[in-house]
């Protein structure tokens, strides 16, 4: 995996979580800026997915490819599904779903990195 992408994803996702948390505290709904913000993080995740697949095909991927790919798919699907679930709730609790999802993303990405580096499986 590309280190700079990992840092970018973890950083932007945590930033997004903080931003959404402020909105929760201020009792705000999940509004359009949060969709755009989630889109930015998601874009980075998609780039990471494409890069990972390319490296796996061209060069050498993680020893446990099945585990890596299942984590990768979960990571990529999380934010869109969370957004869909969050936007239907027009209260701070909708926004709180985004905080949660944006905190899960870095955990997943760190796990992805571990699997890529050959850490023992689950």
């Amino acid at each position: 995996m590309v280190d700079i992408l990992v840092y970018a994803i973890v950083g932007s996702s945590l930033l997004y979580a903080t931003w959404a948390l402020v909105a929760v505290v201020r009792n705000q709904n999940p509004r359009e800026p949060f969709v755009i913000g989630a889109g930015v993080v998601e874009l980075l995740l998609l780039v990471q997915m494409v890069v990972a697949f390319v490296v796996m095909i061209v060069d050498d991927g993680p020893s446990d490819a099945a585990l890596f790919i299942s984590y990768l798919l979960f990571t990529v699907l999380l934010l869109p599904v969370a957004l869909f679930w969050a936007l239907a709730e027009k209260s701070r609790w909708g926004t709180s779903v985004l905080v949660f999802a944006a905190l899960v993303v870095p955990a997943l990405v760190v796990r992805l990195q571990d699997i890529w580096d050959g850490a023992p499986g689950v």
Partner: peptide
Amino acid sequence: SGPGRLLVA
């Protein structure tokens, strides 16, 4: 709805 939104998520 409400907190349940987060809980179910």
